[in-house]
Amino acid sequence: MSSIRKRAASIMHTKIIWPITALAAILLFNLFFVPGFFNIEIKNGHLFGSLIDILNRAAPIMVIAIGMTLVIAKEGIDISVGSVLAIAGAVAISLLGVVPLWLAIVAALIVGVLCGLWNGLLIAYLGIQPMVGTLILMTVGRGIAQLITEGKVLTTDDKAFGFIGKGFFLGLPFSIFIAAFVFLFVLYLKKRTALGLFLEATGTNKISSEYAGVEPRKIYLFVYIVCGLCAAIAGLLVSSNISSADANNAGLWIELDAILAVVIGGTSMRGGRFFLAGTVIGALFIQSLTTTIYSMGVPPERIMVVKAIVVIVVSLMQSDRFRRVFQQKNKQAVAG
C-alpha cells in the first residue's frame, strides 16, 4: 500500500508528468470540441489527418528545442536559432541545381555548425552573456540570409529535396524520422557519453566542475555547436516543406516556441538537470496548441493571447514553488 503511494509520489515528482498532462489535456479538449480531430485517413499509402499534421509541423520545433535543451542546461540561451534556420535554408536552396543535392545539404549543415561555433566562441571564450551574444547572430543572421537569396524568396522544385520536409516514409511524414534521429542521437550523447554528467555539473556549479577537471568552456562551445547544427537541420525541414527559402519569415519566432518547449518539458532556465523527452513532449504540446487554436477558428490576432495564457498556466504548474503554495492551500482547506 505504502509502496504504491510512494511510487505515486515519485511519479508526481518526476518532471515529465506535467508536459504529458498538458498534452493529454489539449488532446482531450480536441476530442470533445474539434470534430474529426482524431480522424486519420489513408491516401496512397500515406496517413493523413490533424494528428499527422501536428507531428509534421512539430518536427522543426522539436529539433531546435532539443539543441536548445542542451544550451539551457548550461544556463545559457540561444535566440539566434530562427536566423540560423533561415540561413541554412537559403544556403541549401541557393546551391540546389548548382551542386549535387547531398553537397547542398552538407553545406547547410556546416553553416549551422559555423553559426554555433561563432555563438560558442563569443559566450564561452569571450565571456559575453548568452542573450546578448546570440542576439548578434539573431539580428545579423536574417541579413546574411537576405544576401544569400539576393533579397528574393528562392524556390525549388527539386523532388528529392522536397522529400525531406514533405515526403512520407512507412506511412508517416519523413520529417518525424529526422526529429526522432536527432532525439536518439542526443539521448545517446547524454546517456552513453559523459556529456550529460558534465553538462549537468557545469550548469549547476561551474566552479566545482572546473575544480573536478571538467572543462566548462569546451562543454559550452560544444552545446552551442550542437544547437546551431539542430537549427540548420530544422532549416532543411522548413525550406523543404515550403519548397522555398524565405530570408525574412522562415523560422520567425521559432526560438520562443523552442524555449517554451524546453521549459514546459521540465528543464530549468537556471541550468542543471535537463530532460530531453520532456522537451519533445513540450514541443508536441506547443504545436498541438497552435493547431488547435487555428482549427477552432480563433481570429489570428487573438492567437498569441490564447497561447500565452495556456503557456503561463503550464509553466506555473511546472514551478515547484507554485505547486508548494498551491498544495499548502489545499492542505489548509482540508484541515480547516
Binding site: 559523459a194 554528467l197 549537468e200 549547476t204 556549479n205 566552479i207 566545482s208 573536478a212
Partner: peptide, 19 residues
Amino acid sequence: AGIVGELTIRENIVLALQA
C-alpha cells in the same frame, strides 16, 4: 568549489574520475 549541489552523491563521486 566542491559540491555540485543538484547532482547525486554517486554523480559527485565519479565526476573527477570521469573527467
